[in-house]
């Protein structure tokens, strides 16, 4: 039996490529970077605060109240719990529709991708649906399902379903064939190739679809709520406008913006977590 003399040294050298930077300098640099990046937002908020006060005439000022009035109104709505009720109503509908879309979209996408004939058959129809704006179908949903929760959740489900479905198909189809070949030579049968190679390999692309679905779930719901609803942020916006409670309307819009931002950031974090290995 000969002993193995292995070039350990080389392996270790290959491994040390981390650059060392002094922590204080890094902190200062990142602070400056953060400031620079939030500059545009701060500028925008300043314009919002100052232009209505010093530039606009009192008549038009009514339609665009300065930021501090909107924030005061927002604070009142938070304290009263009014805002919370609407947020819960909206988020609940989005979440149910979105989760259903993921639960249905991923398995259907995998089946379509795995069975090429099913895919060939369904693809033209999917393309038609995908390119039909969800909101164009809102009247249809309202006619068939009424103006209650069912039609709201359904339109969210519809809007979120296609990004999930299409990205799952794309992900499963774009798996490196080499990995499938490697899996076969390592004794994996067809089902194992699917569950242990195709599925994990498509996770990053599937999560991109899930992120897109989450964003459109919120966007479509707000619009749907503006057309017919008794609660929710979309309802709050149109209702405030109709009641001429302009600061309240802006407070609701601001809430929608923050909510969209938070949902997207959460989904981006989730996406990055599940595709850490793909960052080569």
């Amino acid at each position: 039996m000969s002993t193995l003399v292995l070039p350990d040294q080389q392996v270790r050298v290959e491994n040390t490529t981390v650059r060392h930077v002094r922590p204080t300098r890094r902190l200062g640099a990142s602070l400056r970077k953060t400031l620079y990046r939030s500059g545009a937002i701060i500028g925008f908020l300043l314009v919002w605060e100052l232009v209505p006060q010093f530039v606009l005439e009192p008549a038009s000022r009514v339609f665009l109240p300065p930021l501090h009035e909107v924030l005061q109104q927002l604070w009142k709505m938070i304290i009263s719990g009014d805002l919370g009720t609407h947020i819960v109503a909206s988020l609940g509908r989005s979440a149910i529709g979105f989760i259903l879309a993921v639960i249905i979209g991923v398995p259907v996408g995998l089946v379509v991708a795995w069975f090429a004939k099913v895919g060939d058959f369904l693809n033209p129809l999917l393309e038609v649906f995908r390119n039909t704006a969800a909101l164009a179908l809102l009247p249809v949903f309202t006619l068939l399902l009424g103006i209650g929760e069912l039609s709201k959740v359904s339109i969210v489900l519809y809007a979120a379903f296609f990004p999930v479905l299409l990205n799952t198909i794309l992900g499963a189809r774009s798996v490196d064939p080499l990995l499938i070949r490697a899996g076969k030579t390592l004794g994996l049968n067809n089902f194992e190739i699917f569950s242990k190679v195709v599925l994990p390999a498509s996770v990053p692309i599937i999560f991109t679809g899930i992120r897109m679905a989450g964003t459109s779930a919120v966007l479509v719901l707000i619009a749907a709520e503006m057309i017919g609803a008794k609660a929710g942020l979309g309802y709050l916006i149109t209702n405030s406008q109709a009641s001429f409670l302009i600061p309240k309307m802006y407070a609701a819009i601001l809430t929608v913006a923050v909510l969209g931002f938070v949902v997207n950031a959460a989904l981006v974090a989730l996406e990055q977590h599940f595709s850490r290995w793909a960052r080569a």
Binding site: L178, R181, A182, T185, L186, P200, A201, V203, W277
Partner: peptide
């Protein structure tokens, strides 16, 4: 019984 080593490694990246 017959293992393969490929040029492009073919490791499962996850």
């Amino acid at each position: 019984e017959r293992s393969v080593v490929f040029q492009q490694y073919a490791l499962f990246p996850w």
